[in-house]
Write a protein that binds this DNA or RNA. Sequence first.
DNA 1: ATTAACGTTTACGTTAACGTAAAGTAGAAA
DNA 2: TTTCTACTTTACGTTAACGTAAACGTTAAT
Lengths: 133, 133
Amino acid sequence: MTQATFGIGDLAREFGVTTRAIRFYEDQGMIAPRREGQRRVFQPRDRTRLKLILRGRRLGFSLAEIGEIVDLYEAPAGEAAQLKLLLDRIAARRAELKAKRRDLNASLDDLDAAAKNCRKRLKEMENGRSGKS
Amino acid sequence: MTQATFGIGDLAREFGVTTRAIRFYEDQGMIAPRREGQRRVFQPRDRTRLKLILRGRRLGFSLAEIGEIVDLYEAPAGEAAQLKLLLDRIAARRAELKAKRRDLNASLDDLDAAAKNCRKRLKEMENGRSGKS
DNA sequence: ATTAACGTTTACGTTAACGTAAAGTAGAAA
DNA sequence: TTTCTACTTTACGTTAACGTAAACGTTAAT
C-alpha cells in the first residue's frame, strides 16, 4: 500500500540517506513538508521531490541546479508568457541532459574498447603468442 | 596540425579550465607531464587523460573515482589474472554508467512530459478554454 | 518512573576541489 | 637593461553538502 504520509525516518530509510540530508534540503527550500506540532510530515508529493533530488545528485548536479530542475517538473499555473518561458527553460535543461548523455555514451564506448582490448590480449596469451598485434 | 607537446596554458585554454586545476590534477596523481627544467610539458597522452578527467567531472564523478576509471582505459601489461581482474573492474564501471544513463533517461522523460503538459495548457488558453482537463 | 525510539533545533567540524594571492624564475622583446 | 609573458612553488582561503555532537521534547513500552 502506498502510504499517505511519511516521517523523516521513513524516507531516510527508503532512500538510503540521513535525516540530516533531508533537513538540509528543506533548509535549502527544496522541499517543504508540513508540520504536526514540531515534527515534519511528508506527503507523497514531498517524497517524489526527494526522489528527484537524489536522482539529480546521482547525475552530478549541484543542489542549486537541482532546485531549478525539479521546479520545472511541477505544473505551472501561469500566463501564456510564463508558460513560454518555462518551455524555454525546459528545452535548455533537456539540451544539457542530452549533452551529458553523449558524455556518458562516450565513456561507455571507451570502456567497451578497453574491455575488448583486454579480452584480445587474454586470447593471445592463451594461444601462447606474445607480441601485441 | 595536431601538436606534439603542449604547455599548461595551451591545455587550460583549450579545455576552459584554470592552470590551477590542471596542477591540482597532477598533485592528485591523475596526470604526470614531463618536465623541461621546471616547466611542465604535456604529451598528447596527457592531453587525452585531461580530456577524460574533465568528462568524468561533467558526469559528476569525484576525482578519486575518475582516477580509477581513467586507469581502466590504459593498455594493461599484466598477467592473465591481472587482465581478468581488470575486466571485472571495467564491467563494474560499465554497470554504474548504465545506471546513470537510466537516471538520465528518466530525467529526460520527465522533462518531456512537463513540456507536453505545458504545451497542452498553452493550446487550451489559445482556444479560450479555462479548466485543466 | 524510567528507559527507548523517534523526533527537534543549534552550532561547530569536515572534505573535496579548487580559488587566490605572494614571491620567485626564465626566456623573449623593446 | 628593463619589462613582458608565461611559468613555477608555497600556502592560506573558500564553497558546497553535509557529518557530528549536544541538549532537548514527545510518545510508547517496560
